[in-house]
Amino acid sequence: MNKRDRRVQRVLQITLVLNLVVMIMKLAVSWYSGSLSLFVDALHSMTDSFNNILGLAANHAAAAEPDREHPYGHQKFEALGALAIAAFLGITCLEIVRGAIDRIIHGSKPVQMSESVLWVMLAVLGINILVVLYERNVGKRTKSQILLADAADTMSDIWVTMVVIIGLVGVWMGYQWLDVVLAFPVGVLVLKSGWEILRSNLPWLVDEMAIDPKHIHRHAMSVAGVAGCHDITSRGLLGRQAFIEMRLVVTATDVDSAHKIVKKVENRLKAHYQPVRIAISIEPLGYCIDNNAYS
């Protein structure tokens, strides 16, 4: 495991401990108060803990070097982990709606409120804010999708907690119905977070184009000895691991000279898109192509 992956693992371990603390605090307060919205918030925090465990497993799998069975590496395990987080959020949203409808139909006991409940929730909010800032900062530096996805999940937890706190203040003022009503916008916030994670990771899993072919063509044509390039494709995730394939028309008439030109093109592309793996097929000078296709 390289330095980057060890750092991601350490962040996930720290946030797992913090999320477990937050979950226990919310469960204790929700049991004391009998608040539905607070219990839903605790359920959301429980998914955060599961997500951290899932992230640790996914990051460990993604850190493995390419092997015979996985010649392109294991980086997609990170994206799979992020999609599982989105699935957890979807399940949480369904539980929120189900619980709210059940209380509307069958009713429930009045929510018990006190100053200690609000102070605990404010402490929880502060912990979550620190977790988001920490994970997002490290996630951007390491370009870890699992950290960014987990930060987005915890960010949704912050909004949920803020809504719950507002509802609890309302309940304290005598508006008991707020506890059930606010469960619905909480569900919307959770669903929105899951959708954003899904949208950001699907392109990687379905091999969507990672780099505009025009940009690759421009870099390749700037190398001396290149007469043209075509059939340019790319996939992966730019900044994490990209793959480029192309056919290159060179002016060289011998293999050694052609190989040197190819190496220059590879170095030029690596300078702009590293980490990247490049596969180039060489075409003879007489090969007819339309360079205007990438203009």
Rank of each mutant, 00 (worst) to 15 (best):
V169A: 07
V169I: 12
G170F: 01
V171C: 07
V171K: 06
M173F: 12
G174T: 10
Y175I: 11
Y175E: 10
Q176P: 07
Q176T: 07
W177C: 03
L178K: 06
L182F: 09
P185E: 04
V186G: 11
V186K: 09
V186S: 12
V188D: 02
V188M: 12
V190T: 06
L191D: 02
L191A: 11
L191C: 08
L191I: 04
K192S: 09
W195T: 02
E196A: 06
I197Y: 04
L198P: 01
R199T: 06
N201L: 03
L202E: 03
P203H: 06
P203M: 05
W204D: 05
W204G: 04
L205Q: 04
L205A: 03
V206N: 05
E208A: 11
E208D: 09
E208Y: 09
M209Y: 09
A210G: 10
A210C: 14
A210H: 13
D212P: 12
D212Y: 13
K214A: 15
H215L: 15
I216W: 06
I216F: 07
I216E: 05
H217V: 14
R218Q: 15
R218V: 15
R218S: 15
H219N: 13
A220S: 15
A220F: 14
M221Q: 13
M221P: 09
S222D: 15
S222H: 14
S222C: 15
G225N: 12
V226F: 13
G228W: 08
G228T: 11
C229R: 07
C229H: 08
H230T: 12
I232P: 14
T233I: 14
S234Y: 13
S234T: 11
R235A: 11
L237T: 12
G239I: 14
G239L: 12
G239D: 13
R240W: 13
Q241L: 12
Q241F: 12
Q241T: 10
A242I: 07
F243W: 06
I244K: 01
I244E: 01
E245N: 02
E245D: 02
E245F: 02
M246S: 00
R247S: 03
L248E: 00
L248D: 00
V249M: 00
V249C: 00
V249I: 00
V250R: 01
V250Q: 01
A252H: 02
V255K: 02
V255C: 02
V255T: 01
D256P: 02
